[in-house]
């Protein structure tokens, strides 16, 4: 069936249609096919290091295996609305089953440690269902100091909820934070400094995460403030629909 459906801001074609290269719409031509666009993880994928028994580097542990593997510690988590229903959690699969209840650590000083695990569980669930991309507009785009020009404004560090950039804001990160300065940490991570904090952006994975055949990016933003205890871990699923165009957010963790 030649089905093109519109899902949020992004036209999505079924794999059958992509395979036939019939195109999704006249205004959104598919990028040229790229062979060998296999899913790949980056240094921002830290779940293996958060496990009680990290998998060996040469093991064939799948993302599904990682979801069921025990974390380095058990966390007592409680739903935001029913804190009396606290229970111990030690694996991503157990956490993800109840994540919709907005689970948070009972020990509030464990909030940042748990947020990294929660972000990595969300990432691993996406990686478990990822597939090779048939097409990519990402190509060899670098994770470098120029990222704020390409990433959505939602990347901006906003600890104050009243200053949050709303989903769907069309501006770029560099437009809302023109003073940030980047410093490359590794081949796929960059540290950005600005007057009220530091962000480290790292590649978690790149693959087709939503089944439309087009390559997507999964990035982690580690948010820190100067001389304060606040630390957050945000996960962005992004795509690019045309060559050189800014990235668009498909999904954000934590959801606002």
């Amino acid at each position: 069936m030649n089905a093109c459906i519109s899902l949020s801001a992004r036209p999505v074609c079924t794999l059958t249609v992509i395979a036939l290269l019939t195109g999704c719409s006249a205004n959104t031509p598919l990028p040229p096919p790229r062979s060998g666009v296999e899913p790949a993880v980056g240094t921002g994928f830290t779940l293996p290091a958060l496990l009680a028994v990290p998998p060996q580097a040469d093991s064939a542990a799948s993302a599904h295996d990682l979801l069921d593997a025990a974390w380095y510690a058990t966390f007592e988590l409680a739903p935001q609305r029913t804190p009396e229903a606290a229970a111990p959690y030690a694996t991503c699969s157990a956490y993800l089953e109840r994540a919709h209840e907005q689970l948070a650590p009972v020990d509030e000083s464990a909030a940042a440690a748990f947020m990294e695990i929660a972000a990595m569980c969300e990432a691993t669930a996406l990686i478990a269902q990822a597939r090779p991309a048939a097409h990519s507009w990402i190509g060899d785009a670098a994770i470098d100091e120029a990222l704020p020009v390409h990433l959505p404004a939602e990347f901006a560090l906003r600890v104050a909820e009243s200053g949050r950039i709303p989903a769907g804001d069309e501006r770029r990160w560099a437009e809302v934070e023109p003073d940030i300065k980047g410093h490359r940490l590794t081949v796929d991570s960059v540290r950005f400094s600005h007057p009220h904090g530091i962000q480290e952006i790292a590649l978690v994975a790149r693959a087709d995460f939503d089944g439309d055949g087009i390559e997507d990016l999964l990035l982690l933003s580690r948010d820190y403030v100067d001389a304060g205890s606040y630390a957050a871990f945000r996960l962005f699923l992004l795509t690019r629909l045309e060559n050189g165009e800014p990235y668009r957010t498909i999904r954000l963790f934590p959801r606002s």
Binding site: V159, A160, P195, H196, V225, D226, A227, G228, Y230
Partner: peptide, 17 residues
Amino acid sequence: LIFNVGASNLRTAWPSL
């Protein structure tokens, strides 16, 4: 607030507050 977000963030990133 200042213990959590630090002096510089509190001073520069909370205009409404």
